[in-house]
Amino acid sequence: MGNEKKQSKLKRIVAKRGMGQVITVTFGLVGLIIVFSFLNPFFLTSRNISNLLRQIAPTLLTGIGQSFVLITGNIDLSIGSVVGMSCMISATLMTKGVVPWVAVLITYLASLLMGLLNGKLISKAKLPAFIATLGTMTIARGIAQIVNNNYNTDSIGEAAEGFQQFFYYGKTLGLYNTIWITLVIWLIFNFLLSRTRTGRHLYAVGSNLHAAHLSGVNISSTITKAYLVSAFCATTVGLITTATSGMGTMDAGNGYELYAVAASVIGGVSTLGGQGILLGTVVGASIWGVLQNGLQFAGAPVAIRNIVIGIIVIITVLMDIFVRSNKRIGKAKTSADGNSSPALKHKL
């Protein structure tokens, strides 16, 4: 009986939409780890694993934000610039003597405003997400530059040591705090996405906007929530960046939006909206991190690393399109305009 229950629970987990791709890419991840551990025995040491996890954290955090946005059928190109903006705002405030935790709060508020702006431009002003976030990407980068008169900041100083320990250097239970922060944020947002009404509304908006509207879903609020999550995650990465370098750099976060898209898509979040789970984003970000780390250990030049990673992203997106189009044909065959399920068939 208990065994049956376990089996049915396992079946339910596997049957969950998007889990198929997560399982596939997990095999890929395991394969990569095995290959890199053969290429370099240092790869699987506890020290490297700990560093690897810390390296993965920013990609995973931005990936979580981007996954929320992609699930609603939109995209957030401003993530990288928001990382840079929050890095500069927090560092500038701290160098001006503001208490680090107040600086953190102000940084979060400023970045969430950017998320709010994104959400409203897309849901209320009906701007295409690509254009709206392209605009805010430039605005946020401009703010990052202007906030300290076009200069990187000086060191945030000893007063911010606690801040640096909390976000980057400190350890809890043997793991870096960055990893713990990422884990907590992932757990919260995974719960929000999979277990709450808001999560269902996010999927509904990405799957069929019109039907979601007719079902009473507040489209504007739902899309805005996704962008707020994205801005929150980007800000956290910005703060980690500040804590890491101990200063604010204007070009922090450059290109992060694309890493975030890659992590999400590799993990099975569809760029067409309505599909994906955050477990996939973990695997996607891990693949990204393992490739970076492993190729570095293998002595591959940066250019080769970029080419390999780019090819993997394209292959993954192609797989997504292939699987989706096959499903569509399957649907046409079996359902849509098709077939009765065995459950109903005997009633007809």
Binding site: R17, S335, A336, D337, G338, S341, A343, L344, K347
Partner: peptide, 21 residues
């Protein structure tokens, strides 16, 4: 309604009749 339908299924997996129901 006397209908057995797996409510754990995704709607995209249903037939048009099932969707209509």
């Amino acid at each position: 309604l006397g209908i057995e339908l797996d409510t754990d299924q995704y709607v995209s997996e249903l037939s048009l009749l099932e969707k209509t129901i």
